[in-house]
Amino acid sequence: MTRPVQILLLLLAIAVPLSLMAGRVWIDPATTPNAVVILMELRLPRALLAIVIGAGLGASGAAMQGYLRNPLADPGLFGIAPGAALGAVVSLWFGYAASPYLLPLFALVGAAAAMALLAAIAGRAGGIALFTLAGMMIASLAGALTSLAISLAPNAFAMSEIVNWLMGALTDRGWPDVWIAAPLTLLGIVCLMMAARGLDALVLGESAARSLGMEPAHLQCWLVAGVGLTVGSGVAVAGIVGFVGLIVPHLVRPLTDRRPSSLMLPSALAGALLVLVADCLCRILPLVTELRLGIALSLVGAPFFLWLLMQMRRGLA
């Protein structure tokens, strides 16, 4: 176990109990009435969900940056998150949100459709450029259809529900959401780990990577499956949670030997930590209504992205 992994595990071990206690009401298990119920039915599943979603986004961000050999890459580039969001919006549009399983199911179908479309367009011989462009096209199409669904919403309540959901949050999430997201995310991370050797080879460029035995079609399959499962399941239960996949690999990379395979596990742990802490802060901030997780992360992520661009521009100069 590498040092960054040990440190991140330690930080997570500290953050989890704190996140269980933190909130508008600070829970002391010894004195707070119904503490066990609140912890077991509300805060524990929410904390676990934050960890699962953050880990999936962190790992898929590291994989995407390794695949595209670009520090500005993000899991959203494959169009899977917008695809999942479109699926969820369709379920909200038709009023299926009351069921705990229908909305995530629609989102997962949306993610799967985006993955299938991506695989069909890029094909077996598709290079990285075609693959990325196909992903961006799918993201753009899904985004446009989502906007269309909002503009044609049957009533104001559905519209507000869709817009709120798209902002991303872990409010009121429970065990059913954990049971949906956790196994799929875990499977997704395993798929991403299977891609790790190919991503290491890609450090040297596409032709050198193939000369090292990397098979582009296999690598793309593992990546689409990995990003699809992690991001798709995350969006299915929490909506769009942006910037984690972009920021986390950056923060972690200097602590590793910079090989994409070395970055994957620490990024998963750091993603889990970031989303867990961000969700705690959303609960603690003294606002009229709870700050949406997606908004909070974007508020931190967008300036970080700008700072990154400035650094890169300075590097080019």
Binding site: L204, G205, L212, M214, R259
Partner: peptide, 24 residues
């Protein structure tokens, strides 16, 4: 195979770069 452009995407150490040759 040593391609013409000699691309190295991330700032690896020389040892880690050379170790990529062991991937096959």
């Amino acid at each position: 195979y040593l391609p013409q452009n000699g691309e190295i995407a991330w700032d690896l150490t020389v040892r880690n770069l050379v170790a990529l040759g062991r991937l096959p």
